[in-house]
Design a protein around this nucleic acid. Structure first.
Lengths: 219, 219
DNA sequence: CGCAATCTATCCCTTTTGGGGTAATTGTTC
DNA sequence: GAACAATTACCCCAAAAGGGATAGATTGCG
């Protein structure tokens, strides 16, 4: 393991953070940063080409986000260990990262020394999770009713589409005009999606959606 | 200006980012980081004590957020130049930062070289804004109807309280029970706050509020 | 082909919401 | 004390939303 320095690739759209991380890593003799990417597309190419020992992947990137990048890397057959490094401690992100093949999930506000320990542990093949994360995972797994996000998957395309419009504050009538269908039909879809999501009103649906949109996309 | 190195204080709850920034700054001979804080409370004390030439302040901190910290610093009579450094390009944040006395607003995903240029310009007494920011500011100022945030200030305490409950998805009846008043009264307050905010339904109010809550507080 | 899912639409009915008004109470300010 | 804002509460009424059922059209799948 420490015969040759372990190779590390950094993927984060904040140059500043990359700089800090790189400097931190460079202080370890048996670690070497061999590549830096500022976006997911780049990361895909470089990961396939360089096959680093460890990829440190930011979750909140513009363009292709971290989860999507992770997913595609695994699809492409990247076998490097991949650790997510992020500010988000949202349940969905954590669960999504782990289920899509991440080998760790660390928070950016960690103590640098601790962070380095975890990175080294990750290269050693261990799964690394921030303390705050482990309990989130545990509680998430305890509830098999998947309160995470995948409820969205049970919705049909039309229902999801209408939910998004509700999350913009639109009334049934406006939605009907927007989608060019009758408002009676919109009511049917709303009725169904409320039932599927276990919510009692469009207001609940709206706040639920807005809160869950936060990391899904951004303006 | 460059007789003695200019003193800089960093306030950010991400140690990694502080590290990167500090290293970047240390490469300039006439700049010196004299303090680092990971939270707003600390920053208040240190700012008063050290009176640095420049304070680089993160906007999204847990506990006291950047805007609040900025506000209190100015209230305390801190005269240092203060530049916000953040990932958020939300209109409200920018306008709030500027109106509360920030001397600049920079984004974390800037190019490091450019960032250093801007920091030096800030110390020279110039107002520095990321490119993407200037147009946001311009358009924000063009609309004097203050679509920013301060609309919240026009609400009474009760109305604001009820708006927050709406933003949790609650119905009038539930809100009435929660506040121990009649649901007819809740309707009155809802009616008023909708009028004040220029919104057409509680759903619009809910999504507006949730979106504006994002940086105000966090779980 | 038959079956299930989806999208569309309508009817009926109850509850909720939003907008208009009046008015009593309290506290604050001039 | 008068004037004012805020909170409470009620009235009325129209519009919107939500829940039930039914049903035609289309599409995809075994």
């Amino acid at each position: 393991m420490s015969d040759n320095p372990a190779t590390i690739m950094l993927v984060d759209d904040h140059p500043l953070l990359r700089k800090g991380l790189k400097q931190l890593i460079s202080m370890e003799d048996d670690l070497a940063v061999i590549a830096e990417c500022s976006n997911g597309a780049d990361a895909l190419v470089q990961a396939a080409e360089l096959d680093p020992d460890l990829i440190i992947l930011d979750l909140n990137m513009q363009g292709m986000d971290g989860i999507e990048t992770l997913k595609r890397m695994r699809d492409q057959g990247v076998t490097s260990r991949i650790v997510m490094l992020t500010v988000s401690d949202a349940d969905e992100d954590i669960v999504a990262a782990i289920t899509h093949g991440a080998d760790g999930y660390l928070l950016k506000d960690m103590d640098p020394e601790l962070l380095m320990e975890q990175i080294i542990r990750a290269i050693d093949g261990k799964m690394v999770l921030s303390e705050a994360i482990t309990e989130v995972l545990a509680t998430a797994l305890r509830r098999p009713s998947a309160p995470t996000s995948s409820k969205l998957d049970t919705l049909t395309n039309r229902e999801r589409e209408i939910l998004e419009l509700i999350a913009k504050g639109m009334s049934n009538k406006l939605i009907a005009r927007e989608l060019d269908i009758s408002d009676g039909t919109v009511k049917v879809h709303v009725k169904h999606l409320l039932k599927k999501l276990g919510l009692r009103s469009r207001v609940e649906a709206a706040v639920w959606m807005v809160n869950h949109e936060q990391h899904t996309d951004k303006s």
